[in-house]
Design a protein around this nucleic acid. Structure first.
Lengths: 145, 145
DNA sequence: TATTGTTATACTCTATAACTATA
DNA sequence: TATAGTTATAGAGTATAACAATA
């Protein structure tokens, strides 16, 4: 087996199709709360990588600073993110997640409220979970290219 | 190595982040033409699975028939998709890609105009391409759950 | 002058609801 | 009555452009 040398021509189509489905599914599932999928993603990044500015976040997510700014505004209004001025550069605002947010993230994970986490556990074997984790860097490289 | 038993808690965040980036990248790259990403995806599916109705396509993509209908309208106007009435059921319209479209798909692939195809070839080793292909069914199962 | 961030506006994609036509 | 498809409207997400404040 494994004699297929390059189905590569089919790969983009398959990937596009499954990404589309997955995206709609994620949007559908995340929107039940008061936060959008993008906003949840920003929180995850802030938790993982620590405080950052709007521009830095926008670059990291591959979107325009204005778009990121809109998301941040919502998160600040909800009290999940707070910004403090950079003492060295008055133009910049350092954004970080609030203790309330950190607590909320932990609690919702413990309660298995995260649809995606739940799906990964329920539908994928431990080995498949590992395979999926291994594919993430590949997707990252595609997104960066 | 491989002693990590369950980074699963980090997996959803990582996946969300990379999907977000990849989606924006894809949208950015596909929009240069006259077709949107969703529309390209529908063409790929019609090419792969053959003719289908709006409702079938909508279910397959995980979106509402109305949303799919809007996409189909554009594709019909562009002459890439044509619909013929089902002889057995006058309510249904069987959609299929036109010869022009099939030619166009082949030509653009031959010309390596597909950004995603190009990225996969340029940024991933043959083994990594295989790994990515192996991860697609896993993503499909997540999207279906 | 260059950069951070904001505001205003428009476009794309999808969803909900109401309607027509066929089974 | 149920199903296939259309039309109209609304909402979320992001992009572009123009602006204010700071470096």
């Amino acid at each position: 087996m494994d004699e297929q040398k390059s189905d590569i021509s089919a790969l983009p189509s398959e990937l596009r199709i499954v990404l589309g489905r997955l995206i709609r599914r994620l949007r559908e599932q995340t929107n039940t709360g008061d936060l959008s999928w993008s906003q949840v993603t920003v929180l995850a990044r802030l938790e993982r990588d620590g405080p950052a500015t709007v521009t830095t976040l926008a670059k990291a997510e591959g979107m325009r600073p204005q778009s990121m700014g809109a998301n941040i505004t919502v998160l600040e209004a909800t009290g999940l993110v707070c910004g403090s001025p950079d003492p060295n550069d008055g133009r910049q605002t350092i954004l970080s997640i609030t203790p309330v947010c950190r607590e909320w993230l932990l609690a919702s994970r413990a309660a298995r409220e995260d649809w995606l986490l739940h799906a990964i556990e329920a539908k994928l074997s431990p080995q498949e979970q590992k395979d999926l984790a291994g594919a993430i860097p590949l997707l990252q490289r595609l997104a960066d290219s």
